[in-house]
Amino acid sequence: MSTPSTDSGRRLEIQDLHVTVKTDHEDKEILKGVTLTINAGETHAIMGPNGSGKSTLAYSIAGHPKYTVTSGSVTLDGQDVLAMTVDQRARAGLFLAMQYPVEVPGVSVSNFLRTAKTALDGEAPKLRTWVKDVNTALEQLNLDPTFGTRSVNEGFSGGEKKRHEIAQLELLNPKFAVLDETDSGLDIDALKIVAEGVNRFRGQDGKGVLLITHYTRILRYIEPDFVHVFVAGRVAESGGSELAEELEAHGYDKYVKAASV
């Protein structure tokens, strides 16, 4: 897992990314020059305190309209991600597991999954294998088979929402996945189930993962190749998994203080 990909062309590359968000009064800069490269086959963890801009990074990569990129670049396998629409980014191979998945009343999970798969592949999946794949994915994430008939995220518990995100990750099988605090709000059993799903995904060849988290807990189940400390809109320090252990012991204080000087 920690062996860097030999295919040098395949990577998600973020260069000096500056992003603002519109507030009532002004455009507030949240990301202040993020630079990060995730090669195919690598898992990177981004850790940081609340308000450091971790989620903004996730949403900016996915193209959420609330955020405006003012400078910098994001490329996927050399293609300009920022020039793509939200759905084009997904079709190029990006996936965002959201911290707060959105309810879509009246649209069933199975209809949603089939529509997404069809959009990604450019053709409808073969019915028989698809139904089997969906059932397997739901079962592996400990989701009831009747789950498919429910409206997307409507009335789901917090844990169901997160497990549903990871079921999508496995079924839609992107090149690069950004997981935005997928671990938050999960009890330990649910966390293990979710981590197993992520590990199945990245166990395949050439998959990249950007794991955004506030806590070190999930890193015991999903071992990252690189850990980045994210403070005040940029990467403050990068290292291996030993950096997570240090954060576990000492917290973010040191980095927050340094950033506020």
């Binding site: 939200v86 759905d87 959105v102 309810e103 529509t115 997404a116």
Partner: peptide, 19 residues
């Protein structure tokens, strides 16, 4: 809602139709 659907690769018109 539209962002969520589109982030899964569903084109905007199809996402609107679903909603």
């Amino acid at each position: 809602q539209l962002f969520y659907l589109r982030s899964r690769g569903i084109a905007e018109d199809e996402a609107r139709r679903l909603v």
